[in-house]
Design a protein around this nucleic acid. Structure first.
Lengths: 357, 357
DNA sequence: TTTAGCACTCTCACTTCGAGAGTGCTAATT
DNA sequence: AATTAGCACTCTCGAAGTGAGAGTGCTAAA
């Protein structure tokens, strides 16, 4: 089982490039003409025959050009693709947009999704940064009416969660504020587990509140990823291989289904090297709906503090070079932003240390 | 210009029903056979000819069945459609789901979008309840590091807005809390305008904070609608008239475009009678992208406190009866929920009255 | 090892054609 | 006067047929 010759690799690359460009089977003469190759079409044909035998290319029918197989794309992505970078001007423009709207995570996510979709001309998905373990930063209780209280939980990292509580009896705002302040000072910087062990520090109303806080925090912990932002779904629909069939519908349905999406991200994030880019081609045998699609995924964030996922979904015939470069760039950019905003923030309170008690 | 005879109305109704069901042109004999009519196909043909002349039906080509025109749908929706109700069991089931997750507006929105999409088998859109004028309920300031402060704004109605401030010099948490508390008591229940006139009550740090609060509140006021929740986009793709063409792509693109969506909702909400249902057929000459689509829109909320919009988007050939009934039901349900949660809440503080100062 | 030449295969666009669906009109019927 | 049977006419749609062209694989020569 020899590896491919240089020339074979070169031709495979050309075929993939050309197929991505035109979406039609690539013929030998076509390659020679378009890339002014120093060999005849017959030579190319011989090489194409080898690549077909190896399983990297296939023919839709006996006498048609070649089309890359899943294996072909995989070989290309893992061994042949050369790193490309976004043009400097584009990068500066994007950075600029993000730094314009400082500190608004939700806006960042939307912008990131929009830019990914636009640059890759595919559908994009971005999950909000999600702490591996939620840690309490600040608790606020606000009386609304009667026994009804709005609980606002600010996590280390700035995530905010709210919930309405129904108390067993009415409590005044002053008392609520005091309780919230007390709980905040006691448990600031702690995760759910730590708070649980220190639960006995409070009693009465405060104990009830701490229960709710724990419930909420555990719920946050149990979610694999933050909210998912999507964009550019219609980009996928405009691809020729999807206009007629209902493949597109199935693929997009996947993105509409929160469960499936969580599943997809969960499996991926687990096997993920931070900073690296993962490319899933043709659903990788697991996702029937994505048989004709590929996904380029990356992650971002400050490891140990908060991480998120981002990626683009397009037809298998997507421009991997462009997709990978934009995912990588956005991944780094968001990492910088998140780190800058959250990192020091959480470093104020190294774990296991109560400030003033 | 006489009105239609009863029989003509009846036949128009049948044609529309049948076309919605089958998506193919409706023939005279077909109607007689399927609905066991007491007349011959020739009679039906004569009536069809009249309806065609009046502009309610058209023929794709000389010898084909009839297809409703936009006018036909409009006549049907405004004069012929008989009010249908969701089955009682369905209604109970839906209500139950909402009351399960009490007081979580975001969840409600998602659920509402999901149910609308599912029940109408079309794409759905729901905007979060949005106060006509944001009124401050509670302000919180949380020190993060250095001169960086997290400002959390709780509005009357429970909406939460956050923003990171950069102060000119570091300020301790205690001082921040005190400032927040002071501002809260001063301006609780007030809208941006009222706060602006009472701005001179504070100075120094607090004055700066109030400026930021105002800035944020005015930004909230300037947005026409809250966040938009979408669901069931793929439902539209499965409709036969959209599988091949790129009409679907254009229509869905509209929903992806926040600007266009805002525009759509803005124009509609303005001309909207509360509690009523508005049906836009074929883009109504304004939205080129929706030429083949119809939209059924309703609004919900407590007038004067917070209102939102909800609706479904499908092909012109959508089941208006079902769509209208589900939109109306959800509109009422959400109104009840929102009123129940927010109404009394805002009634605590009738405007222009400072509690303890 | 490369290439020219050629026979062979398969697709695709185009045309033809007949069946069938559905209409509109006319004349007969109620 | 309204309804209906009968019928000629129109148009679509799918099937079948066809030729051009694209592209290959193979063979033999360079």
């Amino acid at each position: 089982m020899n590896d491919l010759t240089e020339r074979q690799k070169f031709i495979l690359t050309l075929v993939i490039h050309e197929y991505i460009r035109t979406a039609t089977p690539v013929a030998s003469q076509h390659l020679v003409a378009r890339y002014k190759l120093d060999m005849s079409s017959a030579t190319v044909r011989n090489e194409l025959a080898v690549l077909t035998e190896r399983g990297y290319l296939r023919q839709p029918h006996t006498s048609a050009g070649r089309v890359p197989t899943e294996e072909g794309y995989r070989y290309f992505v893992s061994r042949l693709i050369q790193a490309t970078e976004l043009p400097d001007s584009t990068r500066r423009m994007i950075s600029h947009q993000f730094y314009q709207m400082r500190y608004d995570v939700e806006q960042w996510m939307r912008l990131a999704a929009s830019i990914l979709a636009h640059q890759s001309r595919a559908a994009s998905l971005v999950t909000a940064p999600h702490p591996e373990k939620a840690r309490l930063k600040h608790l606020e209780l606000i009386a609304t009416r009667g026994r009804q209280v709005l609980m606002v939980l600010v996590m280390v990292g700035g995530e905010i969660h709210q919930r309405i509580l129904i108390l067993s009896e009415p409590v005044g705002q002053d008392q609520l504020s005091q309780a919230a302040h007390h709980i905040t000072t006691l448990y600031q910087g702690k995760d759910a587990e730590q708070i649980r062990t220190l639960r006995s520090l409070v009693e009465g109303l405060e104990a009830d509140v701490v229960e709710w806080v724990l419930e909420e925090m555990e719920q946050v912990d149990s979610v694999v990823a933050g909210e998912v932002y999507l964009d550019g779904l219609t980009n996928v629909l405009s691809e020729p291989e999807f206009t007629a069939s209902d493949e597109a519908r199935r693929a997009l349905k996947l993105l509409e289904e929160p469960t499936l999406l969580q599943d997809l991200l969960a499996r991926t994030v687990l096997t993920h090297t931070p900073g690296g880019i993962q490319v899933l081609i043709g659903g990788e045998g697991t996702w029937e709906e994505l048989r004709q699609c590929s996904i380029v995924l990356g992650s971002y964030g400050a490891p140990g503090v908060a991480v998120g996922t981002l990626g683009v979904l397009g037809p298998m015939r997507m421009s991997y070079g462009r997709a990978i470069s934009v995912v990588r760039f956005m991944s780094n950019l968001l990492s910088d932003l998140v780190t800058e905003t959250l990192m020091d923030d959480s470093a104020i309170k190294p774990e296991g240390e109560v400030s003033h008690e």
